[in-house]
């Protein structure tokens, strides 16, 4: 009993419970058919949300007002950059991935430059940056539907015993992120800044550098995500990242990270991403229309934040 209570006290457990319930509801509807395949598909898709979700989580943990709205544009541009550099050539996969990472990091660094130099709230800095990135992407990747190299496309779809390899790698990455958050100077500093930026400065935290690193990290993860998405969906396009604006914020909030900052939760990002993907699968299985799907997604986010509410505002 006591151990159960400890588990239930963990904020991220609820997102996994939600995901499990949604999955059970779906296989109950299908009569148990396709339950395993559903998990495989959910894992494959959740990976992309988790990667940007972790970046967004670090940004949001920096405290009120911090959020990266440039992720969709970033993903779009990086996917184009990766595909162009790879140019359908298996030998160029590593170079293409590095190019996408570099592109994302540059965007993240530029975001922080705007925040720091113009002293504007991150939400507007990343928003105006996303306008510009979007245009660069449109003009750079226009009309080019470059296919990923076959090796890369296969890699992003590779499964072992029904478990996507990408998901395994992402689990490893999130374990690393969780360790960085709790056990490294960087993570501790992010948490300190999010709780009280002034106290963090007075306790010797290098606030400027940590904020810079965090926005750069978020940008880099957006870039990586763009490349992987282009591989998985077999081609880059401008709108490929659009759904990840809300999704990245939603998984952070649903996963038990505090929007007031200073409290982050890595496992919850996984649970929330699976929950969202499975929810969409369920609604599709039920034959619900796109409109209802959107409404329900929105209401769930508002509902979760209301239930978790009572904290300081994000701006």
């Amino acid at each position: 009993m006591a151990s159960l209570r400890i588990w239930l006290a963990k904020p991220w457990i609820w997102s996994f419970i939600g995901a499990a319930l949604v999955w059970l509801a779906t296989i109950a509807f299908t009569g148990g058919y396709g339950g395993g395949g559903m998990i495989t598909a959910a894992l494959s898709l959740a990976v992309f949300t988790v990667i940007v979700g972790v970046g967004q989580m670090f940004v949001i943990t920096l405290g009120p007002g911090n959020v990266d709205l440039s992720l969709p544009a970033n993903i779009g541009l990086a996917s184009a950059v990766a595909m162009k550099v790879m140019d359908g050539n298996d030998a160029m996969i590593a170079v293409g991935l590095l190019a996408a990472l570099a592109c994302g990091m540059a965007i993240g660094a530029a975001n922080y430059l705007l925040i720091w130099a113009l002293r504007i709230p991150p939400i507007i800095a990343t928003l105006s940056a996303s306008f510009i990135i979007q245009s660069i992407d449109i003009s750079y990747g226009r009309g080019l539907q470059i296919k990923p190299p076959p090796g890369f496309a296969d890699f992003t779809n590779w499964q072992i015993l029904g478990i996507p390899v990408l998901a395994i790698l992402t689990v490893l990455f999130t374990i690393g992120a969780a360790i960085a958050l709790q056990r490294m100077i960087y993570g501790r500093s992010v948490l300190a800044i999010g709780q009280n930026i002034r106290a963090a400065w007075l306790a010797g935290v290098n606030v400027g550098r940590i904020r810079f690193l965090t926005y750069t990290l978020s940008g880099a993860l957006g870039g990586l995500d763009g490349a992987l998405l282009a591989g998985y969906f077999r081609g880059a396009n401008v709108d490929i990242g659009n759904e990840y604006l809300l999704a990245s914020i939603a998984v952070v909030v649903i996963g038990g990270t505090s929007v007031a900052g200073g409290k982050a939760n890595v496992p919850g990002v996984w649970g929330a991403a699976l929950f969202l993907v499975l929810l969409l699968t369920m609604l599709n299985t039920f034959g619900v229309s796109a409109g209802v799907r959107l409404v329900l997604t929105g209401l769930i986010i508002v509902g979760v934040i209301t239930a978790a509410g009572g904290e300081k505002a994000l701006r």
Binding site: N196, A199, L202, A203
Partner: peptide
Amino acid sequence: LVAGDRQSDGIFPQ
């Protein structure tokens, strides 16, 4: 630095 205003300058409440 040892803060005097604990809540605003010193404590990390979480």
